[in-house]
Design a protein around this nucleic acid. Structure first.
Lengths: 203, 203
DNA sequence: AATTTTGCCTAACACATGTTAGGTTATGTC
DNA sequence: GACATAACCTAACATGTGTTAGGCAAAATT
């Protein structure tokens, strides 16, 4: 290839794989599909990777580690629970909007992992959810958040931030910041109209 | 079969198919898998159905019509926007919790539909989302809901109510009503602690 | 009792699947 | 210029795929 910007062929392979896995699903994407999209033969893929599942593993665990960093980072720097949650949401949204294909695979296709890796992956997922849950508990102790079922609330929050992936268009009008802002407001403020007497209202 | 309660073999087939499609995904579930689960040979399935995709179509469109009914029903009976939204959420939750397998297929596996049916399905989905959106607009006009981006809000609401399917356990402690109640409160009230001066607060 | 219908079977098809083996060519390094 | 490595190729494998054809037995209908 005379292309200068071929960072790495393997990275390119993973990128294209993520795109196809998002579009058609992991199981419905064949190695020949993937190879054709790269302009090579199916057998040639095995110069770069060991197996089809290795591709899925790489994509899933790469993103899992990115999400793990969000929690670690947020807990290191910020102190106020609302600030923590807002920042976590912002970073989460950023990861999803900047890695739309990989995110879709991370969110939907991980079921296709097989057993040693599957459990490992689910543990990482649970750990992330627990991280969010701790922030919520802190917020309730600080009397910043309403007293709610924290398990229930954390799952609900994750659902809203993850659903972005379903409709977000990188070429659309909304910026990452704008999305994060609106989502945070929605999660924190709810929908019902209220007078401006929130205890922690900040203009 | 001497079993009395075999409602219909086809219904049973669809039920088992939905279960497997949820567990392993549509593409990863073979007709032989499905047949084995029913205790018959793969070829025998074709006595009941025309093709694998027909199964997927049936499941997806059955549920789509259930969701359509929710909007129609709600718009016929209720007048207050908040009441409408609460009822829509309750009915939506009910459909998901009472049809866990089919819901999972409806939410995740519809991508595997092929072209005439795919577009048809997406239209139904969009119509449903639009139904929710109209309720939100009404609510804003009635000054019951905060002024928000209704497109954004409707997608966010759908994300939260759909995510139930990811963690809901029919044998768990939470009832449909309890889930619907909590979700409605969350969506309408948000997370931030506030004084009890909501314009439309009802104890 | 005769006949249709229902539900399943075996056998087989044409094709798609992930993957391996072994060879060829371009690219970069000493 | 020799050599190593990276990137790709063709050919083929074993197995899995959705589906069809044709037949058999029990149950339901007449």
């Amino acid at each position: 290839m005379s292309e200068l910007l071929t960072t790495n062929r393997k990275e390119q392979l993973l990128e294209v794989a993520a795109k196809l896995f998002k579009q058609r699903g992991y199981a419905a994407t064949s190695m020949r599909d993937l190879a054709a999209e790269l302009g090579i033969e199916a057998a040639s893929l095995y110069h770069h990777i060991k197996s089809k599942e290795e591709i899925l593993e790489t994509i899933c665990f790469d993103l899992a580690s990115k999400f793990s960093n969000v929690i670690a980072e947020v807990n290191d720097i910020y102190f106020n629970a609302e600030e923590k949650l807002r920042t976590a949401i912002k970073n989460h949204v950023q990861i999803i909007t900047q890695n739309t294909n990989q995110s879709a695979v991370f969110l939907h296709e991980w079921r296709n992992l097989s057993e040693p890796k599957l459990s490992e992956f689910m543990k990482l997922r649970d750990a992330y959810e627990k991280g969010i849950r701790v922030i919520l508990k802190d917020g309730m102790n600080e009397d910043v958040f309403d007293d709610v079922d924290d398990k229930f609330a954390s799952l609900t929050i994750l659902s809203t931030v993850n659903w972005i992936n379903e409709w977000y268009n990188p070429n659309g009008k909304m910026s990452t910041e704008e999305i994060a802002q609106k989502l945070s407001d929605f999660i924190l403020g709810g929908l019902r109209k209220k007078m401006v007497t929130d205890i922690n209202y900040k203009p």
